[in-house]
Amino acid sequence: MLQHDYLLEVISRFVEAVSASLRGVLCDGDFARVGEVERAVGELLDLDAQTAMALSPQSLVTMMTLSGVGESVAAYAAYALDKVALAYERQGDATEASLRQAQASAIARAFHADGSVPKEFEELESELS
Rank of each mutant, 00 (worst) to 15 (best):
K119N: 13
Y79R: 09
D5C: 05
V18Q: 13
R109T: 08
A87G: 14
Q101L: 07
E125K: 11
E16L: 14
V37T: 02
A52R: 05
L2M: 10
L44F: 03
L45C: 13
S67L: 00
V15F: 01
V117P: 11
A108Y: 07
S12Y: 03
A49P: 12
L128W: 03
Q3A: 03
Q3I: 00
P118Y: 00
Q3S: 07
G29H: 07
R33K: 13
L8G: 09
L22W: 01
A52E: 03
D93W: 04
V69Q: 11
M53R: 11
V34F: 03
V25I: 04
R33E: 08
A85R: 11
A75F: 00
L2C: 11
A97F: 01
V84I: 03
E127M: 01
L22D: 04
A54L: 11
G42H: 03
D28F: 02
R100K: 13
E38A: 02
A32Q: 14
A40G: 10
K119H: 09
L124I: 01
A78T: 02
E96P: 08
L26S: 07
G115W: 01
A108T: 06
S129Q: 12
V18R: 13
S59A: 12
S98H: 14
S129L: 06
L7H: 06
D82W: 01
H112C: 14
V41H: 14
A17V: 10
V69K: 14
D82R: 15
